[in-house]
């Protein structure tokens, strides 16, 4: 027996509230990120990712307080992403109790930021989030490009090269989202995942497209991911974390049971 593959529920939050509706019937306040995070932690989530989509500066103060509140009650790793642009942003989140930060757009506009962040805070807390979209035609060798702003802005950067570069700059982990698959519930882009996972030495978190437990298992077995991230299948109580782990274990994947 060895290292377990991880299941990571993702909470999208705006101004300190969970958005993209968590629908727990038996929870007092499904908009309260603390209560939701605690629920997932108790259910056996291996980590929690908190994605802040707050736009305003004032709102980000709220986020810091929310992270503090989660971190004082949830004793598993907590990653905070969204709007991380400066070393000061990272320090604020780590001081609030986050264990890792996710860097996305800021890495694309200034790759040296990743290097500076890893040097200052250590690679173990730097997760580079990559949003990739397939740009090759159906008969071509598959090729993916990095997109920013929710998949709207192409960057011309090749996803595999970019992942390699980010690891060289000090990323300790890659959160890989397929913009083609995100929201489709049709499963991860397994070819993309496999290609990135094989290209780098650090763990890959597969994201985007989960609609069933098979998709989670496929992400590990065929996508060669080290962890799988999902939001809606857990938020809407289609499946519990426990069911996901049981299913993965049946497929021969090592998971942490609680």
């Amino acid at each position: 027996m060895g290292l377990a593959k991880r299941i990571i529920p993702c909470l999208d939050c705006e101004n300190g509230r969970v958005v993209k509706g968590v629908q727990f019937v038996d929870i007092r306040d499904a908009g309260d990120p603390v209560e939701v995070a605690k629920r997932y932690c108790d259910a056996g989530a291996d980590e929690i990712t908190f994605l802040d989509i707050t736009a305003s500066h004032e709102g980000r103060e709220t986020t810091v307080h929310t992270v503090e509140a989660i971190a004082s009650q949830v004793f598993i790793p907590l990653t905070v992403g969204g709007g991380i642009r400066t070393l000061e942003d990272i320090r604020a989140m780590l001081n609030a109790g986050a264990d890792k930060v996710g860097i996305n757009t800021a890495a694309v506009s200034n790759p040296d930021f990743v290097r500076a962040a890893a040097e200052r805070f250590g690679s173990q807390c730097i997760v580079v989030a990559i949003d990739a979209k397939r740009v090759s035609g159906p008969d071509e060798e598959p090729r993916w490009e990095i997109f920013t702003h929710g998949g709207r802005n192409p960057t011309g950067l090749d996803a595999i090269d970019w992942a390699r570069k980010m690891v060289e700059f000090g990323a300790g982990e890659i959160l890989l989202t397929s913009m083609d698959k995100d929201g489709t519930k049709s499963g991860f882009d397994l070819a993309l995942n496999r290609a990135v996972s094989r290209a780098v030495q650090v763990p890959i978190i597969a994201s985007g497209g989960v609609g069933s437990l098979e998709h989670l298992a496929d992400g590990i077995l065929e996508g060669e991911a080290d962890a799988v991230l999902a939001a809606s299948i857990f938020h809407f109580q289609e499946y519990t974390i426990g069911e996901a782990k049981d299913f993965m274990a049946q497929r021969g994947i090592e998971v942490r049971k609680i």
Binding site: M1, G2, L3, R6, D46, Q124, E173, Q201, V202, D226
Partner: peptide, 11 residues
């Protein structure tokens, strides 16, 4: 193949 860092839950 095993990734490095050793990251996650181990026995």
């Amino acid at each position: 193949r095993l990734k490095v860092p050793h990251m996650g839950w181990n026995e």
